[in-house]
Amino acid sequence: MISCKHVSKTFENNGQKNEVLKDISLEVAENEFVVILGPGQCGKTTLVNIMAGLDHETAGSVTVNGKQVDGPAPERGVVYQKTALFPWLTVEGNVGFGPKMAGLPKKERKEKAKHYIDLVGLSGFEKSYPIKLSGGMRQRVGIARAYCNNPSVLLMDEPFGHLDAQTRYLMQEEVERIWSQDKRTVVFITNNIEEALYLADRIILLSNCPTTVRNEFKIDLPRPRDYISPEFLKLREEISKHVETTE
């Protein structure tokens, strides 16, 4: 459960103030899949970093599971746009990194890592280094790594932004499958309306610079969704209108 109340963030650079986030309030219920849809470069990653505890809000407050966020914690997992895999570790080493930090014995660590590597469909690649994997496979490792630490909250910061269109569709279906099998509270950031519609229980639409909450849409379509069903296309058109007016 995540709750942001009146969160603002202002960066100061050589006396120049740059307001990035302005009075953002939002709630995410337990095991809810919320997609934050926003244009441009402004503020989305900062919002994720604040929820993660890697950055601090200048005003307002963020609570996760009722506790104030004041630093990184294993209860919150992050999946990054550029994967941020540790290049010197194998797939197994990357996925098992969190448990290793927590001091789990090697054998249990391996079993746990194996379970999540299987879940994301990478069996057989345990001993591969990230440099040998394709973009989609690296993202799978990133997801498995976040899952393996057993977080209650998953923060995904435009995880498919660097993938080609084909792989992107595939990964959207994969995320949906994985999440349905092992549900967590998810905040997923994207600038792609179709992606948002495919994945979200609820879409929160942000405006650009300074970023504020513009609109909210509850998506009640049955899962797994069909990209070309009339309902999907209708919602897509409706949201498109809102996005266009915010630009």
Binding site: A52, L54, A73, R76, G77, V78, A84, F97, A102, R145
Partner: peptide, 11 residues
């Protein structure tokens, strides 16, 4: 980013 990722994983 790698340092951030490691911190999030509890390092």
């Amino acid at each position: 980013t790698l340092v951030g990722a490691a911190r999030m994983l509890g390092a």
